[in-house]
């Protein structure tokens, strides 16, 4: 079951706090984004500078990834959202409300501790949990699609919990909204 919370002032503070600690993580992730739809099976190592806009421009993808936070993390074998994850998603929903020029693809991922098929199904659950939460926060379902990568696209490569906890994630990947051109 999804665990939902109403936004309190305290939570808003924790959102800002989360954004601060997520910033370095997101920047680190920028060198290795799990980008979708680049036409290759490989990860885009160095996206052209400026392709995601100016990170100081609050309407840019770069700002979303770095300052709002493009990803949430999950407990082992779970797809329910942690309070921290919900806080990030509230910010994502707010940002999407303010930036209708973007749609989002939500990628669900699992760590390597599991069989391939099960992890695909688990990644799909995680992506769906994020999608449902964003919709509950007012994002139009038509702007959101999901994909699972199972354990196929880790961002961290060690075989320890400190890596696994970064790989059990759902990433909100922004794209130009359908009909608005790119």
């Amino acid at each position: 079951m999804l665990h939902r919370k109403t936004i309190s002032k305290g939570l808003k503070r924790s959102v800002r706090w989360m954004a601060m600690i997520l910033l370095p993580l997101a920047l680190a992730a920028c060198s290795n984004p799990d980008r979708f739809g680049d036409g290759t099976n490989s990860v885009d190592l160095q996206p052209a500078i400026g392709a995601q806009g100016d990170p100081s421009d609050p309407t840019s993808i770069a700002y979303f990834n770095a300052s709002v936070g493009d990803r949430v993390f999950f407990v082992v074998d779970q797809s329910s959202l942690t309070p921290q994850a919900e806080a990030v998603l509230v910010s994502q929903a707010n940002w999407l409300a303010a930036n209708p020029a973007y749609d989002a693809l939500i990628e669900g991922h699992a760590d390597e501790q599991g069989t391939r098929e099960y992890n695909l199904a688990l990644g799909a659950r995680r992506a769906a949990a994020v999608q449902e939460f964003l919709v509950s926060q007012g994002v139009s379902p038509s702007r959101l699609t999901t994909v699972t990568y199972g354990k196929e696209r880790p961002v961290e490569v060690c075989s320890e919990e400190r890596c696994y906890e970064r790989n059990r994630r759902a990433v909100t990947v922004l794209r130009a909204a359908a009909g608005l051109g790119s």
Binding site: S79, E117, A121, A124, R125, A128
Partner: peptide
Amino acid sequence: YSLTQGGNT
């Protein structure tokens, strides 16, 4: 085969 819709497989 498995088919996933709405997060359910």
